[in-house]
Write a protein that binds this DNA or RNA. Structure first.
Lengths: 109, 109
DNA sequence: CTAAAATTTCCATAGTTATGGAAATATCAA
DNA sequence: TTGATATTTCCATAACTATGGAAATTTTAG
């Protein structure tokens, strides 16, 4: 992932409703949840949640599919992995002091 | 880390100059760099960089110390670890499909 | 004390983001 | 076709963010 992809992804995480949406979808897994269920579960109006789901989609962190009259949203595994990898590898250079117990490139420094 | 701490931290990463600043400071380590060196190295005006350094500080990702007439900024190891941990543990629930090669809580799901 | 250097604060401006009501679109059921 | 359901788009508004010139602050050197 390049910095110009990482920026909108971090921006997507920088908003409470979106971060909660992502957490819910991460826990839900590939089967996903409808826009309506998410709105109910998160206490947001339909237009507001639609706006945030579009932002998360644009950032590559979720994707959607249509099922009947619902739109089902699910976390995008590749996008999320890419973002975590950007943070740990490109931003923190795999430095154990920054990344703590998570991985870590033994050649970092 | 709680969500209300994570939000300003993600917002801090969602801006090109700040993300580059953090990358430079992560690579530099605890000895840090002066505000002026950073401004030169990143091509930002002094007031603009000062604004971004304040944002990064507010987010808990860097901290500063005075040395003579310079202010030296360095990455905050605890803050960065807290953020990575929030992303992997609270947001992604340690799910290997999301976190890829990093970590991973074997009881996640 | 005076001058120079390093950084921040103040300020105005332009641009971006979040919100939800109303209307539009799409799908299904009878 | 009519009506109900699900979601998005349109729109106006309020709030927030990024930028850099000018001025203020702090520190050091002479």
């Amino acid at each position: 992932m390049e910095i110009l992809e990482a920026l909108p992804a971090f921006a997507a995480l920088a908003q409470e409703t979106r971060l909660e949406t992502l957490s819910v979808l991460a826990k839900t897994g590939p089967k996903g949840l409808s826009a309506g269920s998410l709105a109910g579960c998160l206490g947001a109006s339909a237009p507001t949640l639609s706006f945030h789901l579009k932002e998360l989609t644009r950032a590559g962190l979720i994707h959607s599919r249509k099922e009947g009259r619902s739109v089902i949203y699910a976390v995008d595994y590749g996008g999320m992995r890419g973002l975590i990898d950007y943070l740990i590898t490109d931003c923190c250079h795999g430095d154990r002091r920054l990344c703590g117990p998570y991985i870590v490139n033994p050649n970092a420094g």
